[in-house]
Amino acid sequence: MATNVQSFFWSLAWPMFPITIVTIMGFSLKVVALLTIAAIGSALVTQYFIAKFIDNINRIPLIFLNKIMLSGIPLMYAFFDSFPLFIGIEIYSGFLGSIQNSILTSYTLDVVPESHRAEYISILNGFNGAIYFAGALTGGYLLSLFIDFFPLKLALIFSYIIVFSGRFISSFLFRGLKEVGGGRNRGALSILFKPRQPGSPSGAPINPR
Rank of each mutant, 00 (worst) to 15 (best):
I91E: 08
G94C: 04
L96M: 05
G97W: 01
S98L: 06
I99V: 15
Q100L: 14
I103W: 02
L104S: 13
T105S: 15
S106H: 06
T108G: 13
T108H: 06
T108Y: 12
L109H: 13
D110I: 03
V112G: 00
V112E: 00
V112M: 02
P113R: 04
E114C: 08
E114N: 13
S115E: 15
R117V: 09
R117S: 07
E119Q: 14
I121K: 00
S122E: 04
S122Q: 06
S122G: 11
L124S: 03
N125T: 04
N128I: 14
I131K: 00
F133Q: 06
A134H: 01
G135I: 00
A136V: 02
A136D: 06
G139D: 00
G139I: 00
G139Y: 02
Y141A: 11
L142G: 02
L143K: 01
L143T: 00
L143E: 02
S144F: 09
S144I: 07
L145F: 15
L145V: 10
F146T: 03
F146D: 01
I147V: 13
F149D: 10
F150N: 09
F150S: 06
F150T: 04
L152D: 05
L152M: 08
L152T: 04
L156C: 05
L156Y: 04
L156H: 03
I157G: 04
F158N: 05
S159W: 03
Y160N: 03
Y160C: 06
Y160P: 05
I161K: 04
F164Y: 06
F164H: 04
S165W: 03
G166A: 06
R167C: 09
R167M: 15
I169H: 07
I169W: 07
L173S: 07
L173M: 10
F174I: 05
R175T: 11
V180P: 07
R184E: 11
N185E: 11
R186P: 08
G187A: 06
A188K: 14
S190Y: 09
I191E: 13
L192H: 07
L192F: 14
F193V: 13
K194A: 13
K194F: 12
P195A: 09
R196K: 14
Q197L: 12
Q197T: 12
Q197P: 07
Q197C: 10
P198Q: 11
P198V: 10
G199P: 12
G199A: 10
